[in-house]
Design a protein around this nucleic acid. Structure first.
Ligand SMILES: [Zn+2]
Ligand SMILES: [Zn+2]
Ligand SMILES: [Zn+2]
Ligand SMILES: [Zn+2]
Lengths: 142, 142
DNA sequence: CGTGATACTGATACTCGTTCTCAACGATTG
DNA sequence: CAATCGTTGAGAACGAGTATCAGTATCACG
């Protein structure tokens, strides 16, 4: 007798999760949809959006706003980490260096806020876009 | 012979700028539109969007993505600063404590990125929402 | 002034990412 | 098998932002 239907792993949801786990590039919902259609050809976009929301709400994925005006991206790496986003090709890489606790405490003290978390995105040029004049083409946006 | 028409301060643009300067709550474009209609009743929303984009591109205002999925907000305070956003009422207050240079340098070294800037948003509860159970009502979103 | 060139405006149509609605489907239980 | 209920896919709906376009204001110049 299941008191709570935690997360029924339907084929569609499994496929979405697989795509997320296999991705290392923080795809948008639209990109997840594109990729998941290989494994689940008939899947509808609404189902992908619903699956992503479900995975986020159950802690199996993170939803990222990279602050560059682009759509939200999804990340199967649910440990606390930040990102550096290339302004040219849109690539987002993981940054595993947290803000010092002292700084957070100081900001809480000064602002009166109870700080429950933060989001930090660095902007710049990725190594590829610095060297190769063309890099690998302007990927996303801008 | 004016070689470049820099920025013609039309009544509409002036009104938008006044609204921005008077605001201390980082309004969205829609909110700016609402407010500016008091001073410029016939103004169209497209004009507000155009004025905001112009102000941003000429350095008279900043466009903020607060990472909470809500629309972009605008800020007449163009000096470098970050924000703390209340998860309950949506209020965004200024934070004037930059990330230590050493941390940025370390991240640039590790990631190989050339870091040109960053965006940092703290999440939490504002003083009003901590105490007053009701605060001033759930303002924006969530 | 009048004239044309150019910038700006407001209404509206449009785009596009995301959410909603709903009928059909499928798993589960008894 | 029948009843239940969560899930699905199609498509409609939504909303922020953008593009289009005809009309208007501004300006330089004669
Ligand atoms: Zn790049
Ligand atoms: Zn990541
Ligand atoms: Zn609050
Ligand atoms: Zn600010």
């Amino acid at each position: 007798m299941p008191e709570r239907t935690e997360l029924r792993l339907t084929p569609q949801r499994g496929a979405v999760l697989e795509v997320l786990k296999a991705a290392d590039d923080h795809p948008t919902a639209a990109e997840v949809y594109e990729r998941v259609r290989v494994a689940a050809p008939g899947i509808g976009s609404a189902t992908v959006y619903r699956a992503l929301a479900l995975l986020v709400s159950t802690g199996h994925a993170l939803e990222l706003s990279l602050g560059d005006g682009t759509a939200a991206r999804y990340d199967a790496n649910t440990s606390r980490h930040d990102h550096a986003v290339c302004e040219r090709c849109g690539r987002a890489v993981d940054i595993d260096q947290p803000v010092p606790d002292g700084m957070v405490a100081e900001i809480a003290r000064r602002s009166g806020f109870t700080i429950t978390g933060y989001d930090l995105q660095f902007r710049g040029l990725c190594p590829e876009c610095q060297s190769g004049g063309a890099g690998q083409g302007p990927g996303r946006r801008q």
